[in-house]
């Protein structure tokens, strides 16, 4: 019975069926299944499958995002029980992410946040137009391993340097790594401002984040 349920959970993630994933999570709770087991033997299996299919060129970005949404929704249902049992899902690391102040471009940053979350990071998405001190405060508050700063404009990109410097001044670096992204950003720029990493796309950002926390 459990195996069938776990398979259905994986399938709901593969199909990107948010409601179905939530329903199965509730069913697991009703049956008294350990929520951690539901995540690891059920939903995560689906996420990994979608990741493999994507890498093989058989599935696409919307598949990844939908799988991530389904996963997130299922975990949302299971979280109160996880907390009640005093267990926690083992995460790869904690990421604070946002689009820098003066810049309201959302989609690239959101995509990276979703991909990181799906990959097993705890992600705090600060949204867009985020002031430099907010990155620092949040990083300190949640004990971030990584701060991700997005910028789409050459005029706002320059403030990515301010985030690096502010984290330096706050004494959080080098423990906290800074990753930067956005259309005008290059590896050269990341090097110049002393950031710890750069990726051109969301898939690369996941690999980068894993590398930075020593998960790969």
């Amino acid at each position: 019975m459990g195996d069938e349920l776990f398979q259905a959970m994986a399938q709901s993630v593969i199909d990107g069926e948010v409601e179905e994933a939530q329903r199965l999570a509730r069913e697991a709770l009703e049956q008294g299944i350990d929520p951690l087991e539901a995540i690891n033997k059920g939903f995560v299996v689906g996420v990994n499958y979608v990741g493999d299919q994507y890498a093989a060129g058989e599935m696409f970005l919307p598949d990844l995002v939908l799988a991530g949404e389904a996963m997130k929704a299922a975990v949302g249902v299971l979280e109160p029980e996880l907390a009640r049992r005093g267990t926690e899902r083992e995460m790869l690391g904690t990421v604070v992410i946002g689009t820098i102040e003066g810049d309201i471009h959302d989609i690239g940053k959101t995509l990276v946040a979703t991909m990181l979350s799906t990959a097993g990071f705890k992600v705090y998405d600060l949204g867009v137009d985020v002031p430099v001190p907010t990155f620092v405060e949040k990083a300190r508050e949640v004990g971030a391993d990584i701060v991700g700063v997005s910028a789409l404009l050459t005029t706002t990109m320059v403030k990515q340097r301010d985030v690096v410097e502010a984290l330096d001044d706050a004494g959080l670096r080098p423990r906290v790594k800074v990753i930067v992204g956005g259309a005008p950003v290059t590896q050269g720029w990341a090097d110049e401002i002393g950031a710890d990493g750069y990726s051109e796309d969301a898939i690369g950002a996941v690999a980068l984040a894993k590398r930075l926390v020593g998960a790969e």
Binding site: G16, L61, P62, D63, V65, L66, G68, E69, D106, I107, T110, L111
Partner: peptide, 9 residues
């Protein structure tokens, strides 16, 4: 964004 829409899939 439209990435997570069933219509997209």
């Amino acid at each position: 964004n439209f990435l997570a829409q069933k219509h997209t899939k």
